[in-house]
């Protein structure tokens, strides 16, 4: 089991789907498969008439880019995320970070 995870600051996720294609390119996933998939939420809000949020979800295919990270590179999705809203790291450190930031989600894909 990996001691690493992904911390996603979903307040800033714009739903651009770069992470999905980054993962597909990196791992050669065919259309229909990706290590990460973004869902959009649109609803009437409390502070705004309409709120729009996005959440990238690491699927069963996410291997946390074992090859890249062993070479000291960032996971493909994290590196290319246009909003820089994804972070890869050790879970305890990410949890520390999470405690400082609302509207984040911590994933431990494997």
């Amino acid at each position: 089991m990996s001691r690493h995870g992904l911390l996603i600051d979903y307040h800033y996720c714009t739903g651009c789907q770069t992470c999905e294609v980054a993962c597909q390119q990196e791992h050669g996933h065919p259309p229909g498969q990706s290590g990460i998939k973004v869902t959009e939420f649109v609803m009437k809000g409390r502070t705004k008439p309409v709120i729009i949020d996005h959440l990238p979800f690491p699927t069963e295919l996410c291997i946390l880019c074992a090859g890249r990270t062993s070479r000291g590179e960032l996971p493909a999705c994290v590196k290319h995320c246009q909003a820089n809203c994804m972070q890869f790291g050790l879970l305890p450190e990410l949890l520390e970070e999470m405690l400082k930031r609302p509207r984040t989600v911590l994933f431990r894909p494997r």
């Binding site: 770069t18 597909q24 290319h80 246009q82």
Partner: peptide, 12 residues
Amino acid sequence: QGRACPRVLALT
């Protein structure tokens, strides 16, 4: 600064 977009990552 290292980022990309979905279209350029689908270049192949």
